[in-house]
Amino acid sequence: MKPIIQINNLGKTFVSKSGDVKALDCINLEIFPGEIFGIIGLSGAGKSTLVRCINFLERPTSGTVQIDGLDLGSLSSNELNIARRNMGMIFQQFNLLMQRTALDNVCFPLELSGVSKRKARERAKELLEIVGLNDKLKAYPSQLSGGQKQRVAIARALATKPNILLCDEATSALDPTTTTATLDLLKKLNQEMRLTIIIITHEMSVVEKVCNRVAIIDDSNICEMGSVNDIFANPKSEAAKRLVFHKKEHDIPFTSKNCYRIIFDGRSSFEPVIANVVLECKAPINIMYADTRNIDGNAVGQMVIQLPDEELAAKRILHYLNNKKIPFEEVKNFV
């Protein structure tokens, strides 16, 4: 499959009196049609600059950005404006026009591209219905909640029927419930319209909920990239580990589900298996039952352990067991 966004050796340096600041350095990235691609990093890592380079709100200092094979750097400002209509963008602060109603906000990009007022309104109504705001057409942004504003922003970003949606910390100003609802909406749009979505965030939970692939950006570079499952199960770089393990190291709740039997089939008794799992995965394990014995320095027997409720921590542990070639099986309804 051909990538819809191809970024080659992209670099961006901000020049200032106090010296040059390298925001991005040699970024290579391919994003494919229909993907939800996460770009995650701590603040100051350069992720916001990266997303602004994708639609040339920031002009890269070096390297190229190709959208559908079209090199944005080669375009005139007029051609660039037209190319941008193929890329919607939403923001942390929503950035709605405060003096326009929800409906007129959605009409705005259509007016820019010269669509007649009547057609623009029709399309805007359709979009506001898709995002679930058909009762707020005449409301001004100041009368809407944060989640509703972001929905208007999403509708507006989609008005010109773009193939790509760029989300810059789009859920960072929203509470957890609204964040989930907004992410669900993005996922729905991704599936129904085959919209390619790029999500910039500093929250691992956002990536975990919706993204297929993720790139971790640290200190102006992509330090790790891959499928979300792989990176969560087995983060390799320091930055990835920091992001994956950072989340809730304490208080991971257990329920009576999630029990696994691990089998000791003769590995060394001197290897502290459980302690290693806990240390490596930074997640607690509950020992429900154990029957192991030491036969000539080899551990033999079985143990039933319970994994934390939190899905990713559990995945990580299972992945670790797999890697260490420790056989295990799920135990249903262990009492």
Binding site: N81, I82, F91, L96, S113, L166
Partner: peptide
Amino acid sequence: DKGVIEAARSMGA
């Protein structure tokens, strides 16, 4: 708001 101007630019204004 600078953000609103940026949003307009992102829409190709």
